Amino acid sequence: MQISVDVHNYMETLVGHVLADDPYASNYSNEQLADIACLALSQLRPIYIRHDIDFLSALPESRLIILKNYTKTAIENAESMIQKDRRARRGDDVPVMFSHPRFDDDVELEWFEKPLIQNEK
């Protein structure tokens, strides 16, 4: 098994579809599109799957619409960061360091994130 071949993040597919559309593909260079994709994917919860067709057949359409809306919002946020690219004026900014990252471990898992076999105690 090669994990990069056999398993992928479905959110990458959604981000790729949006970035392939004309407003993005024609207005940004490949480097900028890659930056937008990275920034957008960092905002989205990953959904690792093996086969798109199997995942989509079990995914309700309402949930797919929600995932697409999350993707569009993340890309819009990432686009604003690229437009205000701080790398052009690196000497002006002071880096921001987060010493205590917070993760929301209390959020309920999605149906596709729950283990298939539950440990009985």
Rank of each mutant, 00 (worst) to 15 (best):
Y28Q: 07
A78P: 01
E120I: 11
I65K: 04
P95N: 14
F98D: 15
Y10C: 03
N27D: 11
A25N: 07
I3Y: 15
M1G: 15
S57H: 11
I36H: 10
P101K: 11
A20C: 04
A74R: 11
A74H: 12
D106E: 13
R87T: 15
L19V: 08
P115S: 06
L19P: 05
E61D: 13
L33K: 14
V15N: 00
E79A: 05
E12L: 04
Y24K: 05
L44F: 07
Y70N: 02
L56H: 09
E110R: 03
N69E: 15
K72R: 11
S42Y: 08
H17L: 08
K114S: 06
L44M: 14
Y24E: 06
H51L: 09
M11A: 03
E108F: 00
H8F: 14
A58D: 15
R86T: 14
E31M: 04
H51V: 12
T71C: 14
P115W: 05
R102F: 15
A58Q: 14
P46A: 05
V107N: 00
S42E: 08
P60Q: 10
D104Y: 10
Y28R: 07
L116D: 14
D92L: 10
I36V: 12
I117W: 11
R87C: 02
S26P: 03
P23G: 01
D35N: 13
R63H: 09
L44Q: 10
V107Q: 00
L67A: 00
G16M: 05
K68F: 01
S57P: 00
F112I: 06
I53T: 11
T13F: 08
Q83Y: 13
V18L: 07
Q43M: 10
A58G: 06
S99C: 05
H17I: 07
P95I: 13
D106M: 06
Y10H: 10
K121H: 10
